[in-house]
């Protein structure tokens, strides 16, 4: 795991210091550290010559720029209508059962965080979810248990 300041420096060097580079920089830091801490926010601000308030304002606007500590794998279950109609809630229950956590929580080994999200664009193959960047579709409660099992190996 990278040290906090170096992750920020690397991201700013890679993408640039202008304000238009702020989103790519925050995305890069988030990927390196899995979430954006308060000190990441102020480090990015200092490195790019922006106010911390501006950087925090931007970071807090976007769903996928997490400001809370997350597990190494983040599960996003789609909760929008088409997936909901195909049984998204059963998927959520199966995941809670398999991971022994509730929605919004992180497993004690820090491996998984379970969250919901709005439409992820797989409405014809619902219920669907993302684990990190990878979409999983046509889910069943049995299938999600298998998927979690694969991640656990």
């Amino acid at each position: 795991m990278l040290r906090q300041d170096s992750a920020v420096k690397i991201a700013v060097e890679k993408h640039g210091k202008e304000r238009k580079h702020l989103l790519p920089v925050l995305q890069e830091v988030k990927r390196a550290k899995n979430y954006l801490s308060r000190s990441d926010i102020s480090d990015v601000a200092a490195e790019m010559g922006l106010s911390s308030a501006h950087v925090y304002g931007v970071a807090s606007f976007y769903h996928f720029l997490d400001l809370e500590e997350r597990g190494r794998n983040i599960i996003w279950v789609c909760k929008t209508i088409s997936c909901y109609m195909k049984g998204a809630n059963d998927i959520l229950l199966a995941l809670e059962e398999a991971l022994k956590i509730r929605l919004g929580e992180t497993t004690s080994d820090g491996k998984f965080t379970l969250l919901q999200t709005n439409c992820i664009g797989w409405c014809h193959k619902g219920p669907a979810m993302l684990i990190n960047d990878q979409p999983y579709t046509d889910l069943t409660p049995e299938k999600v248990v298998e998927i979690i099992h694969e991640y656990n190996q």
Binding site: R19, K20, L22, Q27, L50, Y62, H63, F64, L65
Partner: peptide, 20 residues
């Protein structure tokens, strides 16, 4: 980074400019 409203073209541009 996950914001439905950014499908609106001026929000999308704001977002590319490093803003909310």
């Amino acid at each position: 980074s996950g914001a439905y409203v950014c499908g609106e073209e001026t929000s999308l541009i704001e977002s590319m400019e490093g803003k909310r």
